[in-house]
Design a protein around this nucleic acid. Sequence first.
RNA 1: CGCGGGGUAGAGCAGUCUGGUAGCUCGUCGGGCUCAUAACCCGGAGGUCAUGUGGUUCAAAUCCCUUCCCCGCAA
Length: 315
Amino acid sequence: MRILFMGTPELAAVTLRAIDEKEGTEIVGVVTRPDKPKGRGMKMLASPVKEYAEAHGIPVYQPKTLRGGAFDEDLRALDPELIVVAAYGNILPHEVLVYPKYGCVNAHGSLLPKYRGASPIQRAILDGERETGITAMYMDDGLDTGDIIEKYPCPILETDDCGTLTERLAKLAGEAMCDVIDRIEAGTVTRTPQPEEGASYAAKIEKEDTVLDFGESARDLVNRIRALHPSPCAATTLPDGSPLKITAARAVDDDSDAEPGTILAADGKGTGGITVRCGEGALFVTGLIPAGKKNMTAGDFVRGRRVSPGDRWGI
RNA sequence: CGCGGGGUAGAGCAGUCUGGUAGCUCGUCGGGCUCAUAACCCGGAGGUCAUGUGGUUCAAAUCCCUUCCCCGCAA
């Protein structure tokens, strides 16, 4: 089957690999977002999907937009029978959606209709959900509103953060898309309209979403830290005003009457831990990234004498 | 040339402004104490202070310059 793949981040690259390695499929091309200047010195950075495609000799297309017929000529030349989309990041116009014989299918990182939109995985963890998954669906003109082919559930573990969960969902997305391709070839694919009930929108993560407010409960703060790890990471500020990213922490009981944000204890033995008073309970921080430094344990941070009980964070 | 921080013992840091025999908290190794211990006490090993036959100097981790690498912010 001639397949055109559209996607951008790591999750999409993993899905692409699964389809590419599947028997009977031919990836005729890959559409991914244009390289953009990124990081120090504004160096150009290619998407994971582009890297995979180039390493495997698959033609890469990076149109700024698919709208207005900008991609029509390439689309006709590639003549795909099916378009598979995974976290592409751009809107697909109607004429593209209806072009392939078998349509456009998408792997979305949530159990639709919940968490439609840009950041379903992060939002699910942020909300403390216990389960999420991949939804295989036909795309329509709306934002993740198309008919559902199949849902593939996946539990969210206590120990999961966005990185580990995304890894599992990526693998699942690959399996899901292979499954869908099998069904299409066998003619057994079905489509079920999404119920409106339970629909929600997972907005893109913005900078303000990364700020830790110690007035919240320790439990919510832990979810925020998990949801944003390993990137961009939840952060607070040190007494000197410099930013501090928190990479790992757990909630602990505490009934002291200290102000939220107060350091209750700083243990520098071994892995160590820094206990921070929250609106409810306390946050036991075990991993962090100071400005200009790499990820380190709380113990390392304490040993460097950069925190002591009584300090306030996040002011 | 987007703004900025940093590279000192296995780890995290101080020392750099005000040049003058390399220090702290840990880890590690050995010994002691203890019913016992990740606790405590004693002792030891471990660093060409990123790079350069670089510059200045009586003397450079420290001042000046080169190159490489790491990271935060902003996009």
